[in-house]
Design a protein around this nucleic acid. Structure first.
Length: 794
DNA sequence: TAATTCGCTAGACCGA
DNA sequence: TCGGTCTAGCGAA
């Protein structure tokens, strides 16, 4: 029997004649599927004497009688202690929920997806190179698996729809273009358009089937779309239905399956990996792996790649399509092509990150693309539990989750800074504070209050919780591995050229490891976590507070003025001391820290601005700007880093900070403000610079308080705009109305702006706090002091 | 139903 | 009309 090798991409299952087969998606020279017989199971915490009774269980479901296949006693580590459990094997994964619900004992591992179950039990990871023997379509024997790297064929696509009333109606309005991009590019359409990349077909039906042909010929493994799970694919399906044609988009010749997981849509295409970049980019931005704050394709593209994409106004698409001028339709085709190309470029950036997260967490790529942080963290813990022969804790009930949510744990310490302008600052922070606290103190739900150590023998948290010193917990073990892997990869990264492919891939891996490592603390304190432990979670933050406060106290003892500190960082004013003093202080701290924890230098800064709070006289936390030795300005918390402020205010604030930090010139700062106020008063500022963007987290109808963005949204909806939960509203405060809400109009509908609002509510508040630290009191600025004041405040 | 808590701010709302 | 309270959004870590 020949040994064969292929890279594993995904696993799900199918039931044939009452038997369960795992269906593996493999990539060798081609991408193909193989089947492997495997049986689902769950555990019951019951004595062996109950086995016979459990074997007799029967559930009626849809006329089918469901019974267990086998019951056997097995030894498992149950939450820190070895124990005998009953393993109940079933003939189909769909039987597991029925039989586990009927079992009159506590049950475990009764809701682990079966494709995943198989991969875990066989020790397989996504992208592992698998050696096996086969017999027809079946795996005869798995031989070994090691790390592999598949070459995936990817293709990005986008559709354009006819939209005479604004939003297209899937049952009526045709899909007029389908664009795709990989090595080659094309736009499928059914009007004659004279562009080299346009492929003209006779009808809408033909462009849909041609698109499926493109996927087949390209042997697409990874299909990228943008919002394609919620829009493009369902739209194509609806059109296929209306046209009474099939949509053979999968390798199996079938359409896709839409899975709704909470708010997220996941369109799963047979034999391919469909990645909707919209949720993926949202997620990666949320956890800080990518930088995007707006999530339209255009905005994400320009924020992530730094390039601009050609745009047409959505509302004009149907007019362009109907136009009698050739050039207008050519323009539309060009636009459509650009959408697919932009999607392809984003896919190329996102894929390496997703692949690494998938490898690391053992979650297949498709699921990783739609996963939450909790699911990623959980995935790896489940995998490692099996390796340790440990039972996976069950998810909490809704009532338990609510109870946990009602009592949040205490978080980090933040020192109140004194407002002012400072020079010569040293900033230190604890490298990976929470992960290092977890590993250094063996924090885990099942090392908590162990039987094997006395209090004196344990790690005891500042709150008095006790953690085992003898046996390493699962979470610390997993984290240690992640950290070790990360530091190894960082070493490999160092000699590489920054613009090389190897660098980018390795950098993605380093980044993925950091993201996952930083999520474990959150998971410990997450109300719906399988591994929730209040005492463990609050011990992490308690130790965090202890170490930072202790460091602050020691710095003061050494004669440093401690300017500020937040969670894991400490800002020292050097004063008469030198950099060496600060560095030797750091050394001293490190010598006293447990192994695994480290205070490191973030950098020296020439100058810094801290401002006071608006409401009180105290210094504001989480709001400062500093000038680094490299000339770069580090800005945190100021309006100018927030997306819900107008760019006129943000730009002015940035320029003022630069005047203060770089040039040390109050006069320059004042002049900037004066000039901007003049421009605002003259009415010459373009509306784009005045737009304020906020995202709405609820259906616009469901708000109790009508804020400006909701007011603008409601007016826009009345005029036919489509605005829903999650939409980002860009609005202008106009002259029309009395309250601010009344004056708010979305950018597209605004005709003028209220200069007084922008001066008094946007520009001045954002700069006054800074100017105040230059010695101007608010009254000075407003009424006297400067010769001309800052305008007349209308 | 989306990893955590801490913190700032705007503007609406409400009652004196 | 004023000031306190509350809702909501977003950022720091």
């Amino acid at each position: 029997m020949a040994l064969r090798k292929a890279v594993l991409l995904d696993a799900d299952y199918t039931v044939k004649k009452g038997k369960t087969y795992v269906r593996l998606l493999l990539k060798g020279k081609k991408t193909f599927r193989l089947y492997d017989f495997y049986e689902p199971y769950f555990y019951a915490d019951a004595p062996e004497s109950e086995a016979e009774k459990i074997m007799q269980m029967a559930v009626e479901h849809n006329g089918e009688k469901i019974t267990p296949l086998r019951v056997q006693a097995v030894q498992k580590n149950v939450f820190g202690k070895d124990k005998m459990l009953l393993k109940i094997t079933c003939s189909s994964p769909s039987h597991v929920p029925h039989l586990s619900a009927k079992t009159p004992h506590p049950v475990y591992e009764n809701n682990i997806l079966f494709g995943r179950r198989y991969m875990i039990d066989k020790g397989l990871s996504p992208f592992c190179l698998l050696a096996y023997e086969r017999e027809g379509k079946f795996i005869k024997k798995l031989l070994w698996a090691k790390e592999g790297t598949p070459k995936l064929n990817s293709l990005a696509f986008d559709i354009e729809t006819y939209n005479p009333i604004g939003a297209p109606r899937p049952e009526k309005d045709p899909c007029i273009m389908i664009s795709y991009a990989n090595g080659s590019c094309g736009v499928l359409t059914y009007k004659k358009i004279n562009k080299p990349f346009v492929v003209s077909k006779k009808s809408e039906a033909e462009i849909i089937s041609s698109f499926c042909d493109v996927l087949r010929k390209n042997e697409t493994d990874v299909l990228f779309g943008y919002n394609s799970s919620s829009f493009d694919l369902p739209y194509l399906q609806a059109r296929s239905g209306a046209l009474k044609i099939p949509l053979p988009i999968g390798r199996d010749g079938r359409s896709f399956l839409l899975r709704k997981a909470g708010m997220r849509d996941m369109a799963k295409i047979g034999g391919r990996i469909h990645i909707d970049l919209y949720p993926a980019i949202r997620f990666l931005s949320f956890i800080g792996a990518l930088k995007a704050s707006k999530f339209t394709l255009e905005a994400a593209y320009s924020e992530i790649t730094g390039k601009q994409k050609y745009m047409v106004k959505r509302l004009e698409i149907h007019q362009m399509w109907d136009s009698s001028t050739d050039e207008v339709r050519e323009e539309l085709a060009h636009y459509s092509m650009q959408d697919a190309i932009a999607t392809k470029e984003l896919g190329a950036i996102v894929l390496p990150l997703l692949v690494e997260m998938s490898r690391l967490t053992k979650m297949p790529l498709f699921d990783t693309a739609y996963a939450t942080a909790g699911q990623l963290v959980e995935s790896l813990l489940i995998y490692r539990s099996y390796e340790a022969n440990a039972i996976v804790p069950s998810k909490p009930t809704e009532a338990q989750a609510k109870e946990r949510e009602a009592h949040p744990i205490e978080g980090a310490f933040v020192k109140i800074p004194k407002a002012g302008i400072y020079e010569n600052i040293a900033v230190f922070d604890f490298r990976g504070l929470y992960p290092s606290i977890i590993t250094s103190h063996n924090i885990d739900p099942f090392t908590l209050n162990c039987d094997c150590c006395t209090k004196e023998q344990s790690f005891v948290s500042p709150l008095g919780s006790r953690f085992c010193k003898k046996k390493k917990g699962l979470i610390p073990a997993v984290l240690e591995d992640i950290m070790a892997k990360r530091s190894k990869l960082k070493d490999e990264l160092r000699p590489l050229q920054k613009d090389s492919e190897a660098y980018r891939t390795l950098f993605a891996r380093v980044q993925a490891l950091k993201i996952i490592a930083n999520s474990y603390y959150g998971y410990l304190a997450y109300a719906r976590s399988r591994w929730y432990a209040r005492e463990a979670g609050e011990s992490v933050t308690a130790w965090g507070r202890h170490y930072i406060q202790d460091t602050i106290a020691k710095a003061s003892q050494e004669g440093f003025d401690v300017l500020y500190g937040d969670t894991d960082s400490i800002f020292l004013l050097l004063g008469k001391k030198g950099k060496e003093d600060a560095l030797s202080f750091m050394k001293k701290i490190n010598a006293a820290l447990p192994s695994g924890m480290e205070l490191e230098l973030e950098g020296f800064f020439k100058r810094a601005v801290f401002v006071s709070k608006k409401a009180a006289d105290a210094g504001a936390k989480k709001k400062y700007a500093m000038l680094g030795e490299d000339g770069k300005i580090k800005i945190r918390g100021f309006e100018l880093v927030r997306r819900d402020w107008s760019s006129v205010a943000k730009d002015t604030q940035r320029r003022v900070l630069e005047a203060v930090l770089v040039h040390g010139s109050p006069q320059k700062a004042v002049n900037i403000v004066r000039e901007v106020i003049e421009r605002l008063r003259s009415g010459a500022v373009p509306l784009e610079e005045l737009a304020i963007s906020t995202q709405i987290s609820k259906d616009p109808k469901k708000y109790e308080i009508i804020s400006p963005e909701i007011s603008a949204a409601k007016k826009a909806i009345a005029r036919g705009s489509h605005i829903e939960k999650g939409s980002i509203i860009s609005y202008i405060i106009t002259k029309n109305g009395s309250t601010i809400s009344e004056k708010a109009e979305i950018l597209e509908h605004a005709k003028n702006y209220d200069a007084s609002y922008y001066i008094n509510h946007q520009v001045l508040p954002s700069v006054l706090k800074i100017l105040k630290e230059l010695g101007f009191s608010e009254d000075d600025l407003k009424f006297k002091g400067m010769q001309h004041g800052l305008g007349h405040f209308m």
